[in-house]
């Protein structure tokens, strides 16, 4: 049954990708890309990757679509007719694709437990991590404890990307005047948004601190919290949003998160262990692991929230400026 769902969903994904190639209306392309992301999130659920599906639905379908729409607002929604022939790219793609298809025949069959990838370190993670780290969610154990150094790098990349966007686009100036912009005429939307936004923030906290036991964690929580503020900015206007969460604060938060993460690693050094070794943080290794994971997940959440929101602020301030001119 799961295989059948897999076949259908992957087929739909292929059709969506095919449609994206031929559409000239970029607005429709971006919307189709949102559908594409949601479909891949469904496929991830079907392939047992619930944490990944969660992230893809929040990040790929939510944030990426908003950012692309923000760009389209500034660059125009029509793609111009292509003058040069598409023959050469088509040829290159077909040749590469054929080579890759030939290559897949040497891959281990789908779902095979004997697959080399499932033999190397995975059995150890699955068998030992509940005792060693003491968390039911193995993905969190691997993410935050076994491969914590890797995750530190990823968090730093998100932080660096936020700096990159800010140096290209700049943050909005915090306005003192309470100009009500946003969707003034949409009364229903405003009321429901006011109802929903606190609930989204509470849900983000739940995802943040329940990530040890179920799907979730710092990455997803940060994105969901940022989505709540983005919704606020879209419905009530950027000036009001910059008064709620000030751009200055975001700069501090983004660096704070990475610092919290790295400081936890250094704390391990001071207690006589290795960098990012949580066993020494408490007298009991499992309790130490627990403290370490909660602290670094909090650091990840803060950085991702601040980075995503400041990226959105960057795009929104550009759009605002374009509207004024």
């Amino acid at each position: 049954m799961a295989e059948l769902i897999d076949l259908v969903l992957l087929g739909m994904l292929a059709i969506t990708a095919l449609r994206i190639i031929f559409l000239k209306d970029l607005f429709a392309v971006v919307m189709l890309f949102g559908i594409y992301s949601f479909l891949s999130a469904l496929i991830f659920v079907n392939l047992d990757a619930v944490d990944v599906a969660f992230t893809e639905a929040a990040v790929g379908a939510g944030i990426a679509t908003v950012l692309m729409l923000g760009t389209l607002a500034l660059t125009g929604r029509k793609e111009k007719a292509n003058s040069h022939t598409a023959l050469l790219p088509l040829l290159v793609v077909i040749v590469t694709g054929a080579a890759l298809i030939y290559g897949t025949l040497d891959m281990p069959p789908f779902g095979d437990p004997e697959n080399p990838a499932n033999q190397h370190v995975a059995p150890r993670y699955i068998e030992e991590s509940p005792q060693e780290v003491g968390l039911p969610n193995m993905v969190t154990s691997v993410l935050a404890s076994y491969r914590a150094f890797d995750t530190l790098g990823e968090t730093a990349v998100v932080f660096a990307a936020a700096i990159g966007v800010l140096s290209l686009l700049g943050l909005p100036k915090q306005s003192q005047a309470t100009i009500e912009s946003g969707l003034k005429s949409h009364l229903v939307l405003r009321v429901v948004a006011k109802l929903i936004i606190p609930l989204i923030l509470v849900f983000a906290l739940y995802v943040q601190f329940h990530g040890d036991y179920g799907p979730g964690g710092g990455f997803q929580a940060g994105v969901i919290a940022a989505a709540a503020i983005i919704l606020y900015a879209l419905v009530f206007g950027l000036p009001l949003a910059t008064q709620v969460i000030q751009p200055k604060l975001l700069k501090i938060l983004a660096s704070m998160g990475v610092l919290i993460y790295a400081a936890t690693g250094v704390a391990g050094l001071f207690f006589g262990g290795n960098f990012l070794d949580y066993n020494v943080l408490a007298s009991d290794p499992v309790a130490g692991q627990h403290i370490g994971i909660i602290v670094i997940e909090f650091g990840i959440g803060v950085t991702v929230f601040a980075a995503i929101l400041s990226i959105f602020y960057g795009f929104a301030s550009q759009a605002e400026r374009a509207n004024i001119q």
Binding site: L183, S185, H186, V188, L189, V192
Partner: peptide, 8 residues
């Protein structure tokens, strides 16, 4: 709400 906002 989404349907309403879309139609409006």
């Amino acid at each position: 709400t989404a349907s309403h906002a879309l139609a409006k």
